[in-house]
Simulated assay, not measured.
Amino acid sequence: MGTTQLENVPEPKYWHLKTVLVDALDSEFEVGEILPNERDLAARFGVARATLRQALEQLELEGRLQRRRGVGTTVAPPRMGVSVGPSSGSWPGATGDAWRTVGCVEAAAPAAVADVLGTDADEAVHTVRRVRSMGGQSVATELLYVPRASVPGLPGDLTPADHAPAVLRELHAVELDGDDRAVELGSARAEDAKQLDRLPGAAVLVVTTRYFSGGRVAAVAVATYRADTCRLTFGDSGAMEITHHGQERHAAAS
């Protein structure tokens, strides 16, 4: 990896440095290879470590680099397609759902979610945690919030192992009127970061889905996707898909 002088570059130093680093990644490094430490990189390019860190963070956000606990910064593998569209119009856990359930608790929902559900701030709701993997790697984690009123037939003596399956089963017995989604860039919370093998505060894509039944919001799912490996595309049908480097595809219509 060579050196460069950035003092007279008109654009921000970190942005130009990012371009130089991209050229180096394409020509000098293999997927999974560990980059030199920040001190060495900053010295080679004649920049402050803060400038270097900005460039690395941008490359991580764009999916070119990955920061891994106990390893360091590595060259990211090509992105894989992760379809979001096919689940539209069905309850979570329906046939073909690619998510894996890992647990369920009863606890108060975050204030913003409670407001959408119309529940009291301290009212416990069923909270199902699910994880989605591709190629042996966790790419997303989800919290599904289900008020007690949405699953009135749920038994009261469930074991921890039966809790999540029972909640999903009761949801499937309810008529689904429709759903909608919103997507935004966020920061990984500690538990989500652990599930996704990311550092807390890392950039993530947050997909919030509201499920409607009987004229009200019957459940809310908040799915957190790795922003370093995922980008969103929207098809003409309105279906949505997450793709990875070099694999532009459209989700099938629901």
Rank of each mutant, 00 (worst) to 15 (best):
G135L: 13
G201R: 02
A107D: 10
G89M: 06
D177Y: 06
L185W: 01
E106D: 15
V146Q: 10
D177Q: 15
T74Y: 05
E191M: 00
E57S: 10
L52R: 10
S90I: 07
A94Y: 05
V105N: 14
R226N: 02
V206D: 01
Q5A: 11
L199I: 09
V102D: 02
R148M: 10
S90T: 06
V75H: 07
R189W: 01
V31N: 05
A109L: 01
Y211W: 13
L232T: 07
R100M: 04
G215R: 11
V222P: 00
P147Y: 12
A218N: 14
A24Y: 06
L196P: 00
S213H: 10
A221L: 05
L158S: 08
H126A: 13
S187R: 11
R231Q: 15
L144V: 01
D157V: 12
A43V: 11
A42M: 06
K13A: 15
R100P: 00
A252D: 14
K18L: 08
S83G: 09
Q5R: 08
R169L: 13
D97E: 08
L17D: 03
A55F: 08
R216D: 07
P92F: 06
L196H: 05
Q54Y: 10
L35N: 13
L117R: 10
V174Y: 13
E175P: 09
A188S: 03
H172T: 15
P86I: 09
D192I: 00
V183P: 00
F29W: 13
G93C: 09
V222S: 04
T127R: 15
I34Y: 02
L117E: 13
T51S: 14
R69Y: 06
A94T: 07
V84W: 04
V22A: 01
P12V: 14
G238H: 10
G46R: 05
R39H: 14
R132S: 01
R100T: 06
E123W: 13
L199A: 08
V84G: 09
S254F: 06
L41Y: 09
R67W: 03
N37Q: 15
A203I: 05
Q5L: 08
G135H: 08
V102Q: 02
T243G: 11
K194F: 03
D192R: 00
R231L: 09
R129E: 07
G215L: 12
P92C: 05
T243Y: 13
G238I: 12
R130K: 04
V220Q: 03
L168C: 01
T19F: 03
M134G: 01
F234P: 00
A239T: 05
R169D: 15
F234I: 04
L17V: 10
S213L: 10
D179K: 12
G103W: 03
T19H: 05
T208K: 05
L65N: 08
I242G: 08
G118E: 14
W99V: 01
A182P: 04
A219D: 12
L21F: 11
E28V: 11
D26Q: 14
E60L: 04
C230I: 11
E142T: 00
L65A: 06
Y14S: 15
A24I: 09
A50M: 12
G81N: 08
V167A: 11
E191C: 00
L17Q: 02
G46E: 05
T233F: 05
P110K: 03
P10R: 13
